[in-house]
Design a protein around this nucleic acid. Sequence first.
DNA 1: TATTAAATAGGATTCATTCCTATTTGTCAA
DNA 2: TTGACAAATAGGAATGAATCCTATTTAATA
Lengths: 160, 160
Amino acid sequence: MQNDKLSDCLDQFIKHCKKFDLRITPQRCAIYKKLIKEENHPTAEEMFNIVRKEFPNISYDTVNRTLLTFAEIGLVDVVSTKGGPRRFDPDMDKHHHFHCIHCGKIVDFYSDEFDNLGIPDYFQDDFTVYTKRVVLNGLCKKCRKKKGLKDRNIAIQNKK
Amino acid sequence: MQNDKLSDCLDQFIKHCKKFDLRITPQRCAIYKKLIKEENHPTAEEMFNIVRKEFPNISYDTVNRTLLTFAEIGLVDVVSTKGGPRRFDPDMDKHHHFHCIHCGKIVDFYSDEFDNLGIPDYFQDDFTVYTKRVVLNGLCKKCRKKKGLKDRNIAIQNKK
DNA sequence: TATTAAATAGGATTCATTCCTATTTGTCAA
DNA sequence: TTGACAAATAGGAATGAATCCTATTTAATA
Ligand SMILES: [Mn+2]
Ligand SMILES: [Mn+2]
Ligand SMILES: [Zn+2]
Ligand SMILES: [Zn+2]
């Protein structure tokens, strides 16, 4: 990202915070700046470790709380997963996810067909739908080879 | 479910277990019998509390481990969620979910249109897709009225 | 610049899940 | 039918993630 693009982005960020009466703290700015560079659906802990490099005093709680706040005001998404630590998605564009059930990797993909899906009519009456995401589960190329999924927990969710 | 239907179901269950070299234990049978009656995407703890009524000695760990084992052999699904305790889905038919971000309720819905969605071609080469689910997030009828979502955590995930 | 409520740091706590291991038990073959 | 044995269980301990608590700091405002 170019520098002017980044500062545009930060201006937007500040406006967005103000709209929701959130104070512009150095912690929030630091977290946001790192967040928008992330491509890998980071956890709060991963973000904590990234941000603390430039902000050694920041606490885990602040990072986690801030990411949740960002989610609330629509600056980041929380990824739907089958378990494991919560993962955040700074890409707010319409897109969908493939989850590898072996290694836990989450891969973005884009599909007009998926995006254009309508919500069933009978549903609209009883529910207000904010987001619609397709979630695929399966094996990525690497994991397809290995296989040997003997341990239950590896088969079910990402395990370190 | 009629009695003969239930025993058919249990026969299937036993066959399925044997196919995977799993022993037929009274715990597994008890859990399975209760599981297939559940409509509400129960957690391990909820299943534990249901099963222990008829099996007072069973341990939480056994219930949780067994549900994960069932998931591994395709007797139950793990629901994709944005947090909170893991929830199981005994309905293995193709269907999709609406999640209320306020109260946490998960509602099934069925849609041929969703089911018939193809996976993007370029994707098939690099990934083996086992399941495809559409996840809607929003507000259910009840929660639409209340609103007042002031507490971040309530807005983000189900909170007791 | 003083006021004030919001936000933070850091430790404690809670909650879900997994691990550990002595004991029990289902399965299979003799 | 019984004995051997690996698999499964019970129950408690440990772990990991998320949340809570509260004294202190600080951004915003006038
Ligand atoms: Mn994404
Ligand atoms: Mn369901
Ligand atoms: Zn993988
Ligand atoms: Zn609701």
